[in-house]
Simulated assay, not measured.
Amino acid sequence: MIGNLEYTIDELARVADTTVRSVRVYHERGLLPSPDVRGRIGYYGVDHLSRLQTISRLLNRGMKLNGIRELLEAWDRGDGLAEILGVPEQPDDTTPETTTAKAPVPQLPEYMRKALAATDPLEGYRLANPHCSDLATRLVDAGLSTTSAFGLVERFRADVDEAVDRYAAELFFHMAGKPFIQSAREVGDRSDFETNVAIARLMTNRAAAELVDQALARHTEPPTV
């Protein structure tokens, strides 16, 4: 049976169309589980081969090793689709009453309150949000107080979070979740799911960046004379 196949590291690299050095690097970086060591030889199974093929597909699609490791670790923990995608599950509270009751200006999160209390607030903010910190720094340079700059950035973040919460679950369900649910959920299906999740996240991120850029362009065009 295929589930009983075993490979030495050389055989695994050859079957997976990669190199022994790559297999060792993936193991050292935490992407590939340890082999079953008997005597002085490590033996790899079908799960290792499937994981290695998944890593190769994700690398070919532009993902970095750190991102792949986080994705695979989330899957190994048994996280649900929302956790793996980095999208918090939200209760179904979209009734008109709850929608209108949402506060338009969110309270500053704990990490921002700590940043404001630090000797250098902008540097404290940068540790958790480097790009948001760049925006906040620019706003401070433009004359806003640190608190006002942080508040403006956080309102922007809240709107982005709301847009992601509204659309991400449906987008990722169609691109990754639905095919997996309809599959036999075998080893190959799991690998396909991991790949589809990564692709869906990458494509959605790129589309979002493009849409934000287009929206910003509409607000930054020079006035006609």
Rank of each mutant, 00 (worst) to 15 (best):
K64Y: 05
L65N: 05
N66S: 13
N66A: 13
N66H: 08
N66K: 11
G67V: 02
G67P: 04
R69W: 04
R69M: 07
E70Y: 01
L71N: 02
L72N: 03
L72Q: 08
L72F: 04
L72M: 11
W75P: 01
W75A: 13
D76N: 12
R77C: 12
G78E: 13
D79A: 06
G80P: 07
G80W: 05
G80D: 14
A82W: 02
A82L: 07
E83P: 01
E83I: 00
E83G: 06
I84W: 01
I84Q: 07
L85G: 01
L85P: 00
G86D: 01
P88E: 05
E89L: 08
Q90A: 14
P91R: 14
D92F: 07
D92V: 12
T94L: 15
T95L: 12
T95Y: 08
T95C: 13
P96Y: 06
P96F: 06
P96M: 08
E97C: 05
E97D: 15
T98I: 06
T99V: 15
T100G: 10
T100N: 10
A101P: 08
A101G: 10
K102R: 15
A103Y: 02
A103R: 13
A103S: 13
A103W: 01
P104R: 14
P104C: 07
P104Q: 10
P106F: 01
P106H: 02
E110V: 09
R113C: 06
R113M: 11
R113Q: 15
